[in-house]
Structures are given as C-alpha cells and as structure tokens.
Design a protein around this nucleic acid. Structure first.
Length: 541
RNA sequence: AGGGGUGUCGCCAAGCGGUAAGGCACUGGAUUUUGAUUCCAGCAUUCGUAAGUUCGAAUCUUGCCACCCCUGCCA
C-alpha cells in the first residue's frame, strides 16, 4: 500500500488493508464514437495511474454497444492517442467481444425472474416512467412467465420483431426515487450494422447492463467513471448482485475535467469536423489529443497537468493558464533552442568583414551543455520589433546610437538608419565591438538588451502558424452550432530562422514555435514575444 | 418538487477533532548574454451559512443557502 494522494486511492488503500481486494485492475472505457480529447487524458491518467501505483492492470476497453455511432476509425485513433501519451494497456477489450456473455446473462436474469420482455413503445415507456416526484406505472407485460419471456427474448434475438417493437427490461421498482431503477431497458432491437460484430446481432445491450458485466468478465476491481454516473451505481450494483458477481467490481465516480474556454463536448467537436469548420479532428485548434499533439504540446506536459490538477468530486473548471504553465515548464527544460526573427530587419555590420563560427547553447538546462556552431557575418537580420525609432522608457533593445548584444555574439551599436518611404526602418547600419565577443568580453560595454539574430546568407525562410483554441461562447449551450472558432488567432508569420531549425528534427524544432510560447521560451527575445504570442492573450480578449 | 452529489484563497487542491499543505495566477525584490529561466519575499485569523457538542471543530450534529446531475430502447 502506498500513500494516497486522492480520494480514489484512499478507497483503494482501505480495501487493500481490509483485504476486500488484493489486487487492482481498472479500465479506460471510451466509446469509439469520436476522438479522445483533453478530458479523456484525465481519465487515462487516473486509470493507468492506478495500474502503475498498485502494480495492477488496466485494459483499454472499447464500450461499443451502440452500433449506430461507432467506427473502426475511432478505435484506431484512440489507440494511437493512448500510445502517444505513453500508456500501455494490458489488453484491448471490446464490449462487442462480450455480446455472447451479455446475452447469456440476460437470459439468466429472465430465468431468475428479474427481467421481462416489454411490448410497449419507447414513447409509452417514457410516459409510464413517471416524473421526478411521481412514481412510474408498471408495464402490463411485467408479469409474463419466465418461459414466455425466454421465448420472446430468443425471438427478439432471432429477428422476429421490428426495431423498437419490444425490449428487455429488468424488474426493479417503478416507484424508486432513482429513475434509473424504474425497470430500465437492458436490451433493444436494432438492425444496425456493427463495425465489429457485423450483422450477427439485431439486439444490443444497453450500457447499464453491459458495463458491469464487461467489468466483471475482465476482472476489473475498480470501475472509475465520471460524476453523472453516480445515479447509475445502484443499477450497476443491482446487476452485479442479481448475477452473483464475486468479487463484484466497485464503481467510483470523479468530476470530469473542464478547462476555461475549451469546448469539450464530443458532439460539438464532431459537428465542427463534419461541417468543415476545422481541418479535422487533428486540427491544432481542437482540444483533442491529436490536435494538442499537432499543436506541439508534449505528452509529458499533458500528463503532468493531469497529475497536478488532482482528482476530486467537486465540479470545477481549471484555468487554461495551468495547462500552459505545465507545457512551458516542460518545454523550458527539454526544448532545443534556436534563434528566429519573425519580422526580418536587415542589419549590416559596417566594420565587420568575413565570417566566423560561434558556439551556441542548444539547451542551457542540459547538464552536458551541448552546443552547435552558428555563423556570424556582416549581413544579418534582427527582428523589426527589436529595434525602435522612438523607444519607450526602459527599452533595452536597439535604438539609434544605442547598443545591444546579439545573443551569443557581439555587442553592436546602431549608427544609422536607412528608411523606407513610409518612414519606417528599412535597414540598419551598425558597428560591432570586436572585444565584446560572448564568453570573452573585455570591452567593458554594458548592453542591457540581448536580442536574437540570424545570419542573412544561410537563414532559412519560415512560415509559422499560430493557433488559438476553439473557444467557448458565453452563450454556448450545446444547441447552437454557429461559428465559434477563434479564427482571428490563426495567424501566419513570415520570418527567418537559423538553418539549424530545418535540418534538425523539424517536427521537434517547430514544436515550440507551434505552441506559441515564444515569450517564455525565448525563441525571440524582447517585446515582440509578448506581442506575438502567449496563447493566454487570446483568451483574455 | 423526489433522488443523487458538491461547497476550503481569483483557479485547482490537501486536510479526516488539536488550532488552514502545495500548485497555477498575481505582487514586490535579487541574479541573468533569452525583459525567459532561476531565486527569495508576500498572498485564507479562516474553511457556503446559522446554531449546537467539545478544553479545542474546516473536520462531529442539526437547520438553512447555493451550485451540478437524473424523467434515451445514448454512453
């Protein structure tokens, strides 16, 4: 037993110490009807976290009991996303793999006298369910004999009845204050092709019946789900008890993740993909795991985020700045550095001839202090925003007659500005101080600012896209699918970067460019950074 | 209205009868060849609220208030 860090672990610890359970097994149970999003990451971390913490097991369980919504494409995407996060499931299981077992358990409920075939229409059932304050009415078919129920149920299975004309219900209590216990439907007739089971079945089990059975069949000890299933727990337990499950899995509920400004409704995300509002589930603006990955969010940062927000039962909404902090923290430690200018401004070092190779720290946080060579010459570019014609107070970067340090190189002084017709700076003529070289500066000159630069001759053109997130409207209610994309924040920049960027692992190099965390990561120095990025600026608007 | 939940700093969140952890955010200040990072300091006399029990309560009891979920043959 290990120290508990949240209420779920406390429960498990208690059960372990009292001997109620002696091993832990969980499952991550998505329905393959869409892509995983950041909310699933929390569930993933909790479920696989238990596996790691208690040296237990965790299956990837695809809860596919509704053939009209599920697709193979989604299970492949789900697997890929989980792998990306670095979790390893013990087994992949599907509710559809247990259809025979679930069917057998349904017959068992019938034989136990616990279930009956009901001929009422969905409308009638709904009408007879009662209300929150009034008890429901019992179905007139509730007292059919076991033999008749069995015969009817088998005929349902064999396709004798039309979709919706009959269903299998369980006999609990139509007067229960918990509406889920008012003789819930556990099997329905549905002639729909199942992406895995094909056309073998024309009846499908409902979640409330299938889930406890699948958990039990897999040996799940703790079935962790979200808060809205709390009301279903009595039914979950009822199924386990009537069917004699031993040991019976225990359902534990936690509060789902909400992040300020992020749309997390699968239904809405699906709509955006289908109507072309985004390029797909993997569009960087999407809060899906694949979208986040394309945005450049490291898997480790996402897991760190999930670990840090904790697990509890209080409905909450985490500020996106927390997620950003986790990403920044990870990237600051791991991201390889390079210099880039997003708005190139030509600079000529008038008193410099030839070229030389300078050492550049790839990652100052790396103990091994890896470096690489960059070329310095007479012609370079700096960022237009690192130069100011009318600098505000405390402006530390380049201005006329002012000095600034070119990162990893020399201190330069701006002697002259060549203007465009509109009065903006077109080119700067600067002089450098030969004895101010980084690492061996004996010039005694104090340059308060340090700016990035790229060598004109070998700089590479880049185009950077900065993405906002899909934003939530104040009025967002889930019904209105009007334009809600934060399109303004999809901005393109044309700039230049050191050739290093392009020759190295491009994907990794652009990781932090794509994230939009320049400011804290220092791809660019100076104010331009804040002007360019920090995703949070997009949210504060 | 019936049932099920939840209320601790702007946002998460520990705490489980012995006198309010931590993180994010924010505010000062120091270091810094990334105005980043790092660093140090500050940030709930109070735990939805009102009573009660107790030497002692965020923790126990009771009443009240607020918010979330539930009337699919979705999950």
């Amino acid at each position: 037993m290990t120290e508990a860090t949240n209420f779920i672990e406390q429960i498990i610890n208690d059960e372990l110490s009292t001997g109620k359970v002696n091993a832990v097994q969980t499952r991550f149970p998505p329905e393959p009807n869409g892509y995983l999003h950041i909310g699933h990451a929390k569930s993933l971390c909790i479920n696989f976290g238990m596996k790691d913490k208690y040296n237990g097991k965790c299956n990837l369980f695809l809860d596919d009991t509704n053939p009209s919504k599920e697709k193979e494409e989604f299970v492949e995407a789900i697997k890929k996303d989980i792998e990306w996060l670095g979790f390893e499931w013990d087994k992949i299981t599907y509710a559809s793999d247990y259809y025979d077992d679930i069917y057998a358990f349904a017959e068992k409920e019938i034989m136990l006298g616990n279930a009956f075939v009901c001929d009422m229409t969905p409308e009638e059932i709904s009408k007879n369910r009662g209300t929150l304050t009034e008890a429901g009415k019992e179905s007139p078919y509730r007292n059919r004999t076991v033999e008749e129920n069995l015969k009817l149920f088998r005929e349902m299975r064999d396709g004798k009845y039309a979709d919706g004309s009959k269903c299998l219900r369980v006999k609990i209590d139509m007067a229960s204050p918990n509406i889920n216990m008012r003789d819930p439907v556990i099997y329905r007739i549905l002639r729909e092709h199942h992406y895995r089971a094909g056309d073998k079945w024309c009846i499908y089990p409902m979640y409330d019946f299938a889930h406890p059975i699948c958990d039990y069949m897999q040996g799940v000890t703790h079935s962790i789900c979200t808060l809205e299933f709390e009301d279903h727990r009595p039914l979950y337990d009822w199924v386990g008890i009537t069917l004699g499950f031993n040991p019976k899995p225990r359902q534990i509920e936690f509060a789902r993740l909400n992040v300020t400004n992020l749309v997390m409704s699968k239904r809405y995300l699906k709509k955006l993909v289908e109507d072309g509002s985004v390029d797909g589930w993997d569009d960087p603006r999407m809060p899906t795991l694949t979208g986040l990955r394309n945005r450049g969010v490291p898997a480790e940062a996402l897991k760190d985020f999930c670990a840090r927000i904790g697990v509890a039962k209080a409905n909450s909404e985490v500020q996106i700045s927390y997620l950003e902090a986790c990403i920044r923290e990870y990237l600051n430690i791991h991201a390889e550095r390079a210099m880039a200018v997003l708005k190139p401004l030509k600079v000529t070092i008038t008193n410099y001839e030839g070229s030389e190779e300078l050492d550049f720290d790839i990652n100052p946080n790396d103990e091994n202090k890896p470096t690489r060579k960059i070329t310095f010459s007479k012609n370079i570019y700096i960022d237009a925003d690192d130069f100011s014609l009318c600098p505000p107070p405390k402006y530390h970067r380049l201005k006329i007659d002012g000095v600034v340090r070119l990162k990893n190189a020399y201190i330069i002084k701006c002697d002259e500005v060549i203007y465009n017709e509109d009065g903006t700076a077109k080119e700067l003529l600067c002089s450098y101080y030969p004895d101010s070289k980084s690492g061996s500066d004996t010039s005694g000159i104090k340059a308060k600012g340090v700016i990035q630069w790229v060598n004109a001759e070998d700089a590479v053109d880049i185009k950077i896209r900065k993405y906002g997130y899909l934003l939530k409207d104040e009025e967002y209610s889930g019904q209105d699918f009007s334009e809600r994309m934060n399109k303004e924040s999809v901005t393109e920049f044309n700039g230049k970067v050191e050739p290093y960027f392009m020759t190295a692992d491009e994907n990794k190099a652009f990781q932090f460019l794509r994230t939009g965390y320049f400011k804290k990561l220092t791809i660019k120095s100076g104010e331009i950074a804040s002007e360019i990025v920090s995703l949070k600026d997009n949210f504060n608007k």
